[in-house]
Each structure stands twice: as structure tokens, then as C-alpha cells.
Computed example of a mutant assay.
Amino acid sequence: MKTPEIQKYRVDKWLWAARFFKTRSLATDAVTAGHIHLNGERPKPARDLKVGDMLRIQVPHGEFEVEVLALSDQRGSGEKARSLYRETPESMVKREQAALEKQLAPQFDHPLAKGRPTKKWRRQLHLLERG
């Protein structure tokens, strides 16, 4: 009698399939850098995932705390990716609060200071520096 083969799913592949990262190498780098926590621990990229595991994922667009609902190592549509996990309500509230704080934070950048300064803006900067 043949035993069914149990498929193993790596953390970095799952993160890529769940569309938290654009490439597998970015997902691997994030795991290695410690931006991913699996059940409260820092995993290695090749660590196996199980259904029910809790992941804390820190990405530039927010921090997510998710429960693994399904396993996949193939990247699909966004709808399929969202079916792989469930975000905790506390995580949603934290992300919304962080977005609101960022929106309400004062902006100190000059609206014309994007990129290289113009000649006029450079003259104004020199006037401010001199006095």
C-alpha cells in the first residue's frame, strides 16, 4: 500500500504566492532579514508552513498579522491569493490607524522640491542660507 505524499510548502514561496511580495527573492530576503515571524519566531526561508500557522509580516505598505488558511506555492490571481490567509481584526485596525496617522502627519517637503531643484528654487535656497 502506497502512502500519500505530503507536500511541503516553504514560507518564502507561500509569501510570494499570497502576493505579499512581488518576487520570490524579495520574499526570501524579507524572511532572512527578520521581517517575517512564524508563530512568534524568526523562521528560515525554507521553513515549512502548516494550515493554522500565524504569520506577522512587515512590508513597506504595512504590517500584517495573518492566519494561514490554505497552502500554495503557485502565484495566482489576487482573489486566489486572499483565500490563502485571513488577517486578524487587530491587524486591520492597526493598519487603518497607521494610515490615518500618516495622512494627518505634517508634510515638510516643499511642493516644488521633487527631483533636482530649479534655478529659481536654488537661488531662494542660497538667500536663506546667507541670511
Rank of each mutant, 00 (worst) to 15 (best):
G40C: 08
D29R: 00
H35M: 09
S83F: 02
L49H: 12
G34M: 13
R75P: 10
A27S: 10
V93H: 08
D73P: 06
R75Y: 14
L26F: 06
Y85S: 02
V59C: 11
P89T: 05
S77R: 14
A81W: 05
Q58V: 15
R47G: 02
P45M: 04
A70N: 08
V66K: 01
A46N: 12
V68Q: 01
E87T: 01
R47F: 06
L38K: 02
S91K: 08
E65K: 04
E63V: 15
E90W: 04
A70P: 02
G76C: 14
A81V: 04
K80D: 00
K44E: 10
D73T: 11
R42C: 11
R86T: 02
P89V: 04
E79C: 09
L26T: 15
S91R: 01
G34V: 10
D53V: 03
L84R: 02
E79V: 15
R75L: 08
P89R: 02
N39T: 01
L69R: 01
G40S: 05
R75V: 14
E90M: 08
G34K: 14
A30P: 02
P43K: 01
S72W: 07
R24A: 05
S91W: 00
G52L: 00
A33K: 10
V51D: 14
R47E: 14
L84H: 09
E65M: 13
L71G: 11
P60I: 14
G34L: 04
E90N: 10
S91M: 08
S25Y: 13
I36T: 06
H61E: 06
R75W: 11
R86H: 10
I36S: 05
A33H: 09
L69E: 13
R42P: 04
L69C: 14
M92E: 06
P45Y: 00
V68N: 12
E79G: 12
E63W: 13
G78Y: 15
V68T: 00
G34T: 07
G76L: 10
V51H: 15
F64S: 02
R24I: 09
R95M: 13
G62T: 01
S83C: 02
S91A: 12
L26V: 09
R42F: 12
R82C: 03
G52Q: 01
R56T: 10
G40V: 03
I36P: 00
R82M: 02
S91F: 03
K80S: 04
L55N: 05
Q74G: 05
A33Y: 09
A30E: 00
N39D: 11
S72E: 11
V93Y: 11
P45G: 06
H61W: 13
R47S: 12
G62P: 03
K50F: 14
D53N: 08
L38F: 08
P89K: 01
A33G: 09
E67M: 12
L49T: 03
T28N: 08
R86Y: 05
G78N: 09
S72G: 11
L38D: 04
K44L: 03
E41R: 06
M54S: 13
R75I: 03
T23W: 13
Q74M: 12
T32N: 05
